[in-house]
Structures are given as structure tokens and as C-alpha cells.
Amino acid sequence: MKLIVIAGPPSAGKTAVVKQVIKRYSGEKRCAYLKIDVVRAFEDEELAAEFGIPTKKVYSGDVCPDHVGILVMKDAIGWAASERADIFIVESAGLCLRCSPFTTQSLGIVVLSAISGVNTPLKMSAMLALSDIAVVTRTDLVSQAEKEVFREKIREVNEGLDIIETNAVQGTGLRYLFRAIDEQAEISDPEKIVLKGAPPLGVCTICVGKKEIGWQNHFGVIRKLEGADFLFRGD
């Protein structure tokens, strides 16, 4: 099973990109999808209805969705595997621009909207720095000049980043994303998946730098895939 983690600001076009990926591999590979959002998300129902794939969602409430993503990731990989998925797509709401949900053994895709202003890349440096690919959406709506400047700003944050420009609704230009997914290695050992970067200072064991996935490896406020409550796991 391949793991794809997609993050980016609200309404950047993450789900639009996910839909193109599912469409591209339909009939060929089985996709499973998990959405991690703060209070409300509808993608699980939409994608299940549109493509008939297994989907799930998790609400993070008061906690940074990227943190919750890490807590539930191990359970979620188990779930996707039990659904016999070939490609497991995790979409994180990525509201907290300090963090980055990207892990080892996965393809990290950051989605940015070209109409969000040319300085947006500079504000999302944590996410950009640790991603493998940046997908810039809504390039159908902006001038060539702004597209180019947007690229430059992304490069300022992460010079070697692979940048893909697309109209995500039409799926134009995504052939290079699909190539990266084709080339992405399968998860080799879920026990060894860790966060790529240390999150900023905070209050939980993830915040203090413990990178292992799975609530079993953390203390304090934790979260399981099943059940909507946060639990306290003391030590």
C-alpha cells in the first residue's frame, strides 16, 4: 500500500486534487481516503458516493489537525490495509501553518491556491519545507506573471521542490503528479513511520518531539481513530 498525505490551507483545492487522483487510478488501483478536519468535513461522504471507495473522517476539535493526524495515522493505516487499499490518501485540513503533517514512507503533497496572493508560500514555510511536491491550483484563473511569481516564492522556501501547476477541477497538468505517485514506494514498515520534522513547541508528546505515529506511543491528550473523544493517557 502507498501512503499519500495531502495538506494545505482551507479551500486550496486539496479535495479537487484527490478526486483527480482517484479518477486516474479507478479500475486499476483501490483507493481509501481519510479526512482530518477541525469541526466539519463532508469529503468522506462525497467521495464515497462519487467513487464508491472506503472513506473516513476524524475531527480534531481544539487540537491542531496535523497533530491529530499523527495520533490516528497508525490506526488509519491498519484500517486502509483492512480495506485492501493500494493507495491510502490522507487529507489534512492543515489550518495550523506552523506544523507539517508529512511523514516518512509517504508522498507528501502540499496544495496551494494560485489566487491566494503571491506571499502565501512564505507564510506556509513549515509545510512547504517538508513536502515532496507542491500542487498549485487555480492557475486557470491568474495571469502568467502571477503564476511565475508564485513559483518563485515557493522556490524561496524550498528550492528543490517539484512544482505542479493545475486547474484541479479539469485535472490539467497533473501527469507529473501521477508519475510521482507511480514512482512512490509502498509503505515498507508502518512501525517505522515517523514525522519528517519536529513540530513547534507545544503541550503534548508530539509537540515535545516524539515523532512515532500511533497514540500508543504518546502521552497526555491522545486520540484513537474510532470514537470521537480525546482521551488522557497519563504516565
Binding site: 496572493g117 486557470d140 491568474v142 495571469s143 506573471a145 502571477e146
Partner: peptide, 12 residues
């Protein structure tokens, strides 16, 4: 190639 459409806008 340069593509200019009706939707192409300058936002800045």
C-alpha cells in the same frame, strides 16, 4: 505557449 482566457485575472 502563453494562454490567455476570459477567466485570466490579475489579482495583485
Amino acid at each position: 505557449v502563453a494562454l490567455i482566457t476570459q477567466n485570466t485575472k490579475c489579482l495583485a
